[in-house]
């Protein structure tokens, strides 16, 4: 408790924000019912997608926003998570052995942890190499590794190559019917809440304090005797695991995985979500994911030239706010209060 670093970055707690979280959670929890009430059943699926992407964006934010590691390759871990689900499912259906063992499965309790572990493993190997660089070089080397993994899956004919893999049925859970859209939404919601709670623990811990120290001045951290490389690697791996988790959920949601999940534009989209929502804020990336996806889907329904509206909107957002949506919110609140 007496750790000054920890005190410095501890979030300001007040009753109002606790109430707001509670309200948000209630709304999210009854969203399927609300969707029924407003006769918008497709909302549930859209909300599921947003929640999954929010997990991925928040995971990237842990590295990017809190530790200053601008990774342009997170789609790789996201895609690997998805492919773990796809490959395990395909072996389960065909009965073919994987690595000579009957490892195929469609049990979510197995596939999700495996997806997290495998993405974490890959993130550890490539992160260990990438972290030998920093700054723009780090951005580009993460991109390079992600592109290599992308081309690997494109060439992987045994698992569909460029066409991807169909997961005809969602992974199952004991006692719960995951095929129901609302049920799957709740599963994702619970996982997302757990993941965000974990992220909050991480960033408000002593570990998190070191991370933000690294972001501000790596040299200073090294000077007080902290091995920054190890911290950065750990955070990169956790971040990759989160992306893998999101990928595994997306494979279940879309019931389809393809190399598109690993393409650099997907990495870019995660970055956009983080920046749009506000890097280095806990819930910013979730808001960024929600706004980006909602704008995309609503504008596309409104006009086929939706990009000509979305593009300038993004530009204006950056020019007139600082820190994306979080900045916009601060601006608005400042205007109201002052």
């Amino acid at each position: 408790m007496d750790d000054p670093l920890k005190r410095a970055i501890a979030p300001r707690k007040n009753v109002r924000s606790v109430l707001l979280v509670a309200l948000a959670l209630v709304v999210l929890a009854v969203l399927p019912q609300l969707a029924d009430m407003f006769e918008q059943p497709a909302m549930v699926s859209l909300a599921t997608r947003i929640i999954i992407l929010a997990i991925a964006a928040a995971s990237l934010n842990l590295a990017l926003g809190y530790c200053g590691l601008v990774s342009f390759g997170h789609a790789a871990w996201y895609g690997i998570g998805g492919y773990v689900v796809g490959i395990l499912y395909n072996h389960y259906v065909s009965g073919d052995p994987l690595f000579g063992l009957p490892l195929g499965t469609d049990q979510m309790l197995i596939t999700l942890p495996v997806a997290i572990l495998v993405s974490g493993l890959f993130a550890a190997v490539f992160g260990a190499l990438s972290l030998r660089t920093s700054g723009v070089q780090f951005i580009m080397i993460t991109l390079a590794f992600a592109q290599m993994i992308f081309f690997f899956f494109v060439a992987l004919k045994a698992y569909g190559g460029d066409d991807g893999l169909i997961v005809r049925r969602r992974n199952s859970l004991p006692l719960i019917d995951t095929r129901d859209g609302a049920t799957f939404y709740w599963i994702c919601l619970v996982i997302a809440i757990t993941w965000f709670a974990l992220l909050r623990r991480i960033v408000s811990s002593r570990f998190g304090a070191v991370l933000s120290g690294v972001r501000q001045s790596e040299r200073r951290m090294a000077a007080i005797g902290i091995s920054t490389y190890r911290y950065k690697l750990v955070v990169f791996v956790i971040s990759g695991m989160g992306a893998g988790l999101a990928g595994a959920l997306m494979a279940n949601h879309a019931r389809f995985v393809s190399p598109d999940m690993l393409h650099w534009t997907q990495s870019g989209e995660f970055m956009i979500m983080v920046i749009l929502g506000g890097a280095g804020t806990l819930l910013g990336p979730a808001a960024g994911a929600a706004v980006l996806i909602l704008l995309e889907s609503q504008l596309a329904a409104f006009t086929e030239h939706w990009q000509v509206i979305l593009g300038p909107l993004l530009v204006l957002m950056i020019l007139f706010t600082r820190g994306g949506l979080s900045g916009l919110w601060k601006l608005l609140r400042g205007g109201l209060n002052g």
Partner: peptide
């Protein structure tokens, strides 16, 4: 954007890509 973070530049110029592509299509 000169004084801004690289991240802001990424988002703003990404917005420009969308705009230019669609404008060219139109």
């Amino acid at each position: 954007l000169y004084a801004r973070d690289h991240l802001d530049q990424v988002l703003a110029t990404f917005g420009l890509i969308l705009f230019f592509n669609q404008l060219t299509t139109i």
